[in-house]
Amino acid sequence: MSAENEKFPKQHIVGFLGSLVLTLAAAWAVVGSGLPTHWIIISIMVMAVVQAFIQLFMFMHLTEKNGSIQVGNMLHAFFIAAVIIAGSVWTMSFGFSHNHSDNGGGGEEMQMEEQEHNH
C-alpha cells in the first residue's frame, strides 16, 4: 500500500511504456517483418494478451481487496470468450474449405478425416 502514496507512479509508467512498445512491435510485425501470415497473427495475438494483462494488473488494481475472486472472474471471462470465439469459428468453418472439390456422395467421411488431420 505504501507504493500508492509515492509521488512517482512507477508502475503506471512502466505499464504505459510496455504497452507502447508492444503496440509498435505489433504494427511493425504487420507492416515490416515479412514473416509468414500465420506467424504474424500468432505473434500479434500474444502481444495483445500481454497488453491486456498489463492493463489488468498494472492499471486496474485487479489483485486488490477481493483480488482472488476478481482474478478468478477475469480468468473465467477469458475462458468463456475463447470458447465463444474459437468454437464459433471452428463450427462455422467446419468442412467449408472442402466443399468446392467434393462431388458429394460418399465424400463426407473423407472430409471428416481430413478435418481431423488438420487439427
Partner: peptide, 28 residues
Amino acid sequence: DRMTVLGFWLFLGAEIALFATLFATYAV
C-alpha cells in the same frame, strides 16, 4: 463500497462475454 467494486468486476466479466460474441460474429 468493496462489494460495489467487486460487483463491477463481475459486470466487466459479462461485458467480455458480450464482446466475445461480437468478435466471434466478425471472425465468422
